[in-house]
Design a protein around this nucleic acid. Structure first.
Lengths: 200, 200
DNA sequence: GTCTATAGCAGGATAGAC
DNA sequence: GTCTATCCTGCTATAGAC
């Protein structure tokens, strides 16, 4: 479902299309998801929301310098986007703009997913030495720049928007004060505390 | 049409709904737009695309410092978004993510609109003293951050994403080298050359 | 050119056999 | 629990009267 949502949006994705893609008839879907199409979409958003936030420490931990890591992460996203034939990488972004006014329940789910991203992302950046307020603002900026660059990149079929966004956010992050100068022993070891537990 | 597109997206916006909003029956729409729904959407995207880029010099000219102007522009967008009940401010962003894979003709129109934004925005920033390559990257970053922040703001019904994005892009822009230190006589006079002529 | 009526079709959802 | 057949509603698009 997430695959269809991120490339087509909510309104254009049909239950029958989903059933065909899943190899199951429509009846089964309504049996498992009592709320119909809305419920399936909500589950898909929650699922990918929880999965995507895990990528943040995976992508940034290997880089001792946070700004370098950010730029590399955007470059990675650009490469992935191009390799998947410009299918959008984030169903939350694709769907939220579409349903924010017309589907209150789904908007609430999107709100919940975004809020969890901000919370967990902030924790990670605090762990990397940013102040809580700076960390929160930086996650908003990073996430917004990523979602917007995805849109531009998909519209133009070019990686340029993502690379430009990555460079801009990296420059911004580099300008933020760091309290703990990131002792090398904390880096590259693998995972760090604070993001291991999945969201509710 | 642009009003409906920016709040509901393309697939969810019906011709009948559009007809009702326009006060005209569906037949008239098909009489004026031979291509049907697609053609109406294409015209709406081109129309708003040409209108929105005009805002860039209007918003940034009054500020001698480019970074200050950028942050103020995002704050203005945040205020407008909240005052309009969180209806999205940009139909291009809302629609592009939705149809980039499924509607090749509309994607081409979106590509054209975005490209014109980049071209004209770059010209403006070059006029403000940035190098051509820096200007182009900055417009991509600014535009992507704006579109993405719109999505987050609409999902969360909060101005925080837009304010964070504005601050981040302002910080980034402030770090770029300026060749012409913006002589005060060029500013505040009104409009500058390079953006007067509308796009094709 | 403007509007009405309708054709043709697809989508979401359900009932009920297995 | 799984799948089939179907209802109903909505849409796009058109034909044709004014």
């Amino acid at each position: 479902m997430a695959e269809l949502l991120r490339s087509q949006g909510y309104a254009a994705t049909g239950i029958q299309q989903l059933a065909e893609a899943a190899g199951a008839p429509t009846g089964s879907i309504y049996h498992h998801f009592k709320g119909g199409k809305r419920a399936v979409a909500a589950a898909a958003l929650r699922h990918t929301g929880a999965a995507y936030i895990q990528l943040l420490p995976l992508l940034l931990d290997p880089h001792e310098d946070l700004a370098t890591g950010v730029e590399a992460a955007f470059a990675q996203a650009a490469e992935d986007l191009e390799n998947t034939g410009w299918a959008n990488m984030c169903p939350v972004g694709t769907v939220t703009g579409e349903i924010a006014d017309a589907e209150p329940e789904l908007r609430a789910v999107a709100d919940e997913v975004i809020a969890s991203w901000i919370d967990e992302g902030s924790q990670y950046l605090v762990h990397r030495g940013l102040s809580p307020s700076d960390a929160r603002a930086a996650v908003y900026a990073l996430l917004g720049a990523l979602e917007g660059a995805f849109i531009l990149a998909r519209g133009q079929r070019s990686t340029e928007p993502l690379l430009a966004a990555g460079h801009a956010i990296a420059t911004y992050v580099a300008a933020l004060p760091v309290t703990t100068p990131a002792s090398p022993s904390d880096l590259g070891v693998g995972r760090e505390a604070g993001l291991d537990q999945a969201p509710t």
